[in-house]
Design a binder for these strands. Structure first.
Lengths: 197, 197
DNA sequence: TACATTTGCTTAACAGTGTTAAATTATTTA
DNA sequence: TAAATAATTTAACACTGTTAAGCAAATGTA
């Protein structure tokens, strides 16, 4: 009964088609536009048959998330293998991580909970620039020859660490209080040390 | 006609009620559970009257976002005023920022695009731990006396900077390529310097 | 070949969403 | 009191995820 195999192969194929269709829609219109009926449209079926392959929309998203982690791991491993010095390996792996985030930004978004809906905030909400102004003022006083560019760079360095740590804590909550404190301290003193340097 | 004033005051009041109801629902059930009909239930009206006060659900969310930025700015200003040394001011302001994020985590989420849906990822997707394993291995080789705790701390320090910078770039896209590179380099070399220190 | 059964797929439906228009009720004005 | 205006609701539309019922084609069995 080789026809059984053929049918199983076909089923596996539409499973893949569903995932590909979903990712295609997300890449074209964003996560919020993803719907079961749209996926069905792309694979030229009606919505209910998707449930023969996935328990829910959530399950499809989860599978894409899993695929994302597999690609990320593959990229980081490849980067690691190109070097022998641990320090170089570190640098290469984080660069691979960085590149992955932008090459597969839709996957990165769902893997680490990054919403892109609220872009161009400053134009709609002017108040959103207050934090920058406050920090920039202090930074300028600390620098011997402050330039707009340098202040901005330092600001983003600080902001990145802190926002990153907050995001990580909010998304997969937990971590010990001490570790957070340690991370913050290490990062902030490390960055402050690089001012006028 | 003082009754005009009274009516205007009442209208202003239900406007506030709508915003408070929305925030209440979000705090109790999360952003994804927020709906116009639920808001209407809380303020004891039917959904359509909300449109007399806000053009859309999006507008309500935007107003809450704005309120969030106002609170954040107030907190940071208060922190700044308590110190004179710019370095101390910086530290205090970032701490205020940090505290705000957890005190008003729902507001922080919508202000900076942090999704909390995908928590406890490691339990559902084991592959999500691969990046940690890869990085940890390299970190251990670099440390003279590596402990699990220390490796973890360093990992999170790195991850925070990079994820933070990525998030910021994805959410309000833009920034110059050079600045990103500069921020990354500054942060990474700064952190590496603190290893075995 | 003829019938029964399973499979693949679709249509219809339910409960929910944001949003709008029409209908209704209450309030104010003349 | 009657007319006009404002406040509020009901009904509806187009969408969402999801489930159950129906149908039609392929398959298994006699």
């Amino acid at each position: 009964m080789a026809s059984k195999d053929r049918i199983l192969r076909l089923k596996e194929e539409t499973r893949i088609n569903i995932l590909e269709a979903a990712l295609q829609i997300v890449k074209e219109e964003g996560w919020q536009a993803l719907s079961m009926r749209k996926i069905a449209d792309v694979i030229e079926y009606t919505a209910p048959i998707i449930y023969e392959y996935f328990a829910s929309k959530e399950a499809i998203i989860l599978e894409l998330t899993r695929k994302g982690f597999l690609i990320l791991a593959r990229d980081m491993e490849a980067a690691k293998e190109k070097h022998h010095l641990p320090a170089k390996q570190l640098e290469a792996m984080w660069l691979a991580y960085w590149n992955f985030a932008f090459a597969e930004k839709e996957l990165y978004q769902v893997m680490f909970g990054v919403n892109t809906n609220c872009c161009e905030l400053a134009k709609i909400i002017p108040e959103s620039e207050a934090p920058y102004d406050l920090i920039a003022e202090a930074l300028e006083k600390m620098m011997t020859q402050p330039t707009e560019d340098e202040v901005c760079t330092k600001y983003f360095t600080f902001w990145s660490v802190i926002h990153g740590l907050i995001s990580i804590n909010l998304v997969n909550r937990g971590r010990s209080e001490e570790m957070n404190h340690e991370v913050l301290k290490t990062a902030i003193t490390g960055i402050i040390r690089t001012i006028n340097d």
